[in-house]
């Protein structure tokens, strides 16, 4: 149950050591229209359950890590 983030450089650390970078999203391609861009920028899956997300270890190694986290239970798994 422990809410800790796996940093590949520093190990399992308290989430407050990180800056949350949001859910991982695919940026629109070069020919994408405005609606596609707006959807990408402002809309989120905002999953209640497992989602792939970015965390930046700003009080640690200063690296970005991708984490698969359950936003309800805080369980973290390898994908």
């Amino acid at each position: 149950m422990a809410f800790l983030i796996d940093c590949p450089n520093c190990g399992r650390r308290n989430p407050y050591e990180f800056r949350f970078g949001g859910e991982c999203k695919e940026a629109p391609g070069p020919d994408a229209d405005l609606n596609t861009w707006c959807e990408y920028l402002y809309f989120n899956e905002n999953m209640s359950g497992f989602q792939q997300e970015w965390w930046y270890h700003n009080m640690g190694c200063g690296d970005w890590v991708k984490v698969r986290r359950n936003t309800v239970t805080h369980e973290i798994t390898e994908d």
Binding site: F3, Y16, F20, G22, T71, H74
Partner: peptide
């Protein structure tokens, strides 16, 4: 809280 969560914990 500075990250998304659906769990109403306190920290």
């Amino acid at each position: 809280d500075p990250f998304s969560s659906w769990n109403s914990y306190t920290t």
